[in-house]
């Protein structure tokens, strides 16, 4: 494992066995999470971005099968393969409770409606950090203040339903922080929010990430959000990563036809009335039978015969910019030759 990284995912495959057939949700995904940095996983609905991140915490339903490696560097420096742990064992529960925290699109998935905010947040503090009830309560109020909940001393005893949408999102973030996590997985954290609230919550996440030196995985369909929030972007399509690289490079010089198409199809604030946004023809195919070649082949305007037959190998173009596309095979060799 690279000493820079806190998390390395290698050849992750997740399948769901349903009565209708096998859903190939994640189909051989590899990426790194450098310590203290933030990475983004971007893709449209059904691309497997959420499933791949739930796999990191082994939060998959029992009918899912998982293979590949999820290497995680623990606090004491030991490296553990999360993919090998028992899904309900003590070790994974410890990782979930301490090391890898998650925040979700819908806060009510992690907040219980029948307990006060105080009880829910202090539970983790008492359980994993051995605080007394009183200490935990004070720490909870501190955390609520930290995430910008006004009148935290009073609101700490309220129930989630008494909170507005934005406040619930903040409470959920406070709950994630209570564990002193080293990795934060944010799954579409602002998709359900209006723009002004989205901006508030995103800037909060950014502040906290910097302040606590968190390593963050941000999962979203919104390229606008990743553009401002993360250092490395992974673009996913149909269960595979098709391109990965530093945010600036991905946005300035996208290489994969899907990335290019995606970036061009986003309406921008600087658009012009009547201007046509270029779009990607067709729609995302179903994940029941995935193509054996490039997943984007059916919609690609540069497609070649080889694309249907063979999954392209990764081609590294910049120092950290990698693309999985047959258009670029040989380009690496050519560049090496030119350098030589």
């Amino acid at each position: 494992m690279n000493p820079k990284n806190i998390l390395e995912v290698r050849d992750l495959v997740v399948k769901f066995k349903l009565s209708e057939g096998i859903v190939h949700a994640v189909n051989g995904v590899s990426y790194d999470v450098p310590e203290g940095k933030s990475i983004g996983i971007v893709g449209e609905s059904g691309c497997g971005k959420t499933v791949s991140s739930y796999a990191l915490n082994r939060l998959l339903p029992p009918y899912a099968t998982l293979s590949g490696q999820i290497l995680f560097r623990q606090q004491d420096g030991n490296i553990i393969d999360i993919a090998k742990l028992k899904p309900e064992g003590r070790e994974i529960r410890a990782i979930r409770g301490r090391d890898i925290a998650m925040i979700f699109q819908e806060p009510m998935t992690s907040l219980s409606p029948v307990h006060t905010i105080c009880n829910q947040i202090s539970e983790a503090l008492i359980l994993f950090q051995g605080m007394t009830k009183k200490q935990a309560r004070n720490r909870t109020i501190e955390l609520l203040k930290l995430v910008g909940i006004p009148q935290a001393e009073r609101r700490v005893d309220e129930y989630p339903f008494q909170f507005s949408g934005g406040m619930r999102q903040r409470a959920m973030i406070a709950m994630a922080l209570a564990r002193n996590p080293r990795v934060l997985i944010a799954d579409e954290p602002t998709t359900a929010l209006d723009v002004t609230l989205q901006a508030q919550v995103l800037s909060l996440i950014q502040d906290l990430q910097n302040r606590f030196n968190l390593s963050m995985i941000l999962i979203t369909h919104a390229l606008g959000v990743v553009a401002h929030m993360v250092e490395t972007v992974n673009i996913m399509y149909l269960g595979r990563i098709v391109e990965t690289g530093p945010t600036m490079e991905i946005f300035e010089e996208p290489l994969h036809p899907y990335t290019q198409g995606l970036l061009q199809s986003i309406p921008k604030l600087t658009g012009r009335l009547g201007e046509r946004v270029s779009s990607i023809p067709g729609s995302v195919p179903s994940a029941y039978d995935i193509p054996k070649g490039c997943p984007f082949e059916a919609r690609c305007k540069h497609r070649m015969e080889i694309c249907r037959e063979e999954m392209p190998k990764p081609v590294t173009v910049g120092s950290e910019h990698t693309v999985y596309c047959h258009l670029y095979t040989g380009r690496e060799a050519a560049r090496d030759a030119a350098n030589a």
Binding site: C300, K301, M304
Partner: peptide
Amino acid sequence: MARKKIPAPAADTA
């Protein structure tokens, strides 16, 4: 393997 280009998909992919 052939690297011949094949036609791009139409807007309404058949």
